[in-house]
Design a protein around this nucleic acid. Structure first.
Lengths: 112, 112
DNA sequence: CTTAACGCGCAACCGAACGTTGCGAATGGA
DNA sequence: TCCATTCGCAACGTTCGGTTGCGCGTTAAG
């Protein structure tokens, strides 16, 4: 079982700036690209591109209103992403536990 | 609390090929770059570069032996990476829960 | 001992991704 | 109407993941 990871979702949340964008949107509700860029170390255009990526994988959704475009987190999709993180994490964790157990067994065997 | 994530570690495990390299090393014990590349859809050189990245962040460690170089997972560092995955995951999860609670509260408020 | 084969590193190259700057277009308020 | 604000588009540079080609050292076979 290789954890059935969606590489699209992963690489979307793999970028540090995109993670911070998601953090900001989660913390402050829907915001525009310009507003987000003011609280990030990158330009508005960079933020816009990241929002496009997040939109493409369904993690955010655009809400146009007049000349502004407010972006909001898609909670269901983010929950799916969180599940994938947990999935990979627990898979590796299980491997590590098994390795530790085997190592301890060998230690005991040495004591023959 | 922004979860104090190490971007170096994150981007190391953010790459799909590097995750698969770690999976293979965890499953089959120490292996050489050539052996790994035979079970991956990329060339030996690509694997070698990924191993260099993983080595730089301490997720694997090289064990030279004659003309071969066997790579092994650093379990402590991988455990740290797993902790970061869990950290980000649970942070987002908590946000999602709060949002849901607030939404429900508003729903109840509407029923006035 | 000589030689062939294997494993590795280095360098050049290509395409995609992240970031920048500069510009023009459209909307909103004075 | 006019100015400010917000956005989209295009060009550019840099880094990253991947490939190919070559040369070097180690191992093993003759």
């Amino acid at each position: 079982m290789t954890t059935a990871v969606d590489d699209g979702l992963w690489s979307a949340i793999g970028d540090p700036t995109r993670r911070r964008v998601l953090d900001l949107l989660l913390a402050g509700g829907g915001r525009t690209a310009t507003a987000l860029s003011e609280q990030l170390p990158v330009t508005r255009q960079a933020v816009a591109k990241h929002l496009a990526v997040l939109d493409r994988v369904g993690l955010v959704h655009a809400a146009p209103s007049g000349r502004e475009i407010r972006y909001e987190v898609d909670e269901a999709q983010l929950a799916r992403a969180v599940a994938q993180l947990a999935s990979v994490g627990s898979a590796w964790d299980a491997r590590l536990r098994r390795i530790k157990r085997i190592a301890e067994a060998i230690q005991r065997g040495k004591a023959d």
